[in-house]
């Protein structure tokens, strides 16, 4: 009974971040995902008896919920109703992506032409694309051939297919990064999610990426089992450790604008870049929203005045 009450209290206070110990694609904690965090099968979800037994067991062993630590909420230029991109930052983030992330991660939904939104000129985009080689074809002879990329091409993937990606990365295919800033978020929990509707907090994705990239190198709590080939990171959403080794180190990327090359700076820049990649129309959306809200507010005021006039002599 005491335990029941404690669980109730914990649930109410959201000490249990719950619900998000997700076995994420490619970030799988170990080559055999079943060992780390068995994902419930369909039958467990629909058949409640099995689920309940599993739950009771889970309570006994005090299974930790992931992530172990909540990401810090950073200040992003694109947050809030007047959010905008810091183009310098996006260009720096693109450089980090290109020189570090792209070695393993694809970004197949983004085309080179999209990079013009980062402030590059058409010629610069052509030059950037020209550095890549893509496979085209078949040509008139029926053969596939390689050619330099053009702006309408999408970023080529580092691996031929997911199987090759998994084989080269200890069995865990690195996830595509096109949408990663929207596909990862630590659950906010009550009452945070209620406040979020007012504060417009929508940056859980970049906050998570930043926290993950800067969260390596800490000591795991005693008793934590780290599978061989995985790396402890208390911010990882799917378990205590992930297959991706710490990708960033100080001065790994040389910025053209003289910004100091710290891991924190790299993480911020690449998180912003990935937010842009996931939501290229974000700023346009918010700017449109401002005009729409203004219009609706004025319209509402006018309709209210007409309504008042219509009902003026009609008690109701």
């Amino acid at each position: 009974m005491k335990k029941l009450l404690a669980a109730l209290l914990a649930g109410g206070l959201m000490i249990i971040p719950a619900a998000h110990a997700q076995d994420k694609e490619g970030e799988a904690a170990s080559p055999s995902p079943q060992a780390a965090a068995p994902a419930p099968s369909e039958s467990e979800v629909t058949s409640n008896v099995a689920g309940d037994e599993a739950a009771a067991e889970e309570g006994e062993h005090e299974t930790p919920h992931y992530p172990l630590k909540r990401p810090a909420e950073l200040a992003w230029t694109f947050a809030g109703p007047f959010g905008h991109w810091d183009l310098q930052q996006l260009q720096r983030g693109y450089k980090v992506y290109k020189e570090v992330c792209a070695a393993c991660h694809s970004m197949e939904l983004v085309a080179f032409r999209n990079l013009e939104a980062l402030g590059y000129s058409e010629d610069q985009v052509k030059a950037i694309a020209g550095d890549y080689t893509v496979t085209d074809g078949p040509n008139g002879d029926g053969d596939m051939f390689e050619r330099p990329a053009i702006p309408s091409d999408h970023f080529p993937s580092p691996f031929a297919n997911p199987e090759a990606a998994a084989a080269a990365n200890n069995g865990a295919a690195p996830p595509d990064l096109s949408l990663i800033a929207k596909a990862r978020a630590v659950e906010r929990g009550f009452p945070r999610f209620v406040f979020d509707t007012v504060t417009q907090y929508q940056e859980a994705g970049p906050d998570y990426i930043h926290a993950l990239l800067t969260g390596y190198g800490q000591n795991p709590p005693p008793g934590t089992v780290i599978q061989p080939g995985t790396h402890f990171n208390p911010y990882f959403i799917g378990g205590p450790a992930l297959a991706m080794p710490p990708p960033l180190s100080a001065d790994a990327v040389t910025y053209d604008d003289g910004t100091p090359g710290t891991v924190d700076q790299y993480a911020r820049d690449v998180s912003s870049f990935l937010m842009w990649a996931a939501e290229p129309h974000l700023v346009e959306r918010k700017a449109t929203g401002f005009v729409v809200m203004l219009y609706l507010l004025i319209f509402a005021a006018l309709v209210y005045l007409v309504k008042k006039r219509v009902w003026a002599n009609t008690p109701h």
Binding site: A19, H20, A21, Q22, D23, K24, E25, A37, A39, P40, S41, E42, P81, P175, L179, K182, A183, R184, A185, F193, D196, T197, Q200, Y201, Q202, A204, G205, G238, A278, R285, K286, T288, G289, F290, V292, M293
Partner: peptide
């Protein structure tokens, strides 16, 4: 305009994969 993904779920920005069940 300001929080279009608030009511959605992040997992739906991951393509469907019949071999990977989401945790919840």
């Amino acid at each position: 305009f300001y929080m279009p993904n608030f009511l959605g779920h992040p997992d739906n920005y991951i393509p469907a994969n019949p071999l990977k069940t989401p945790a919840h």
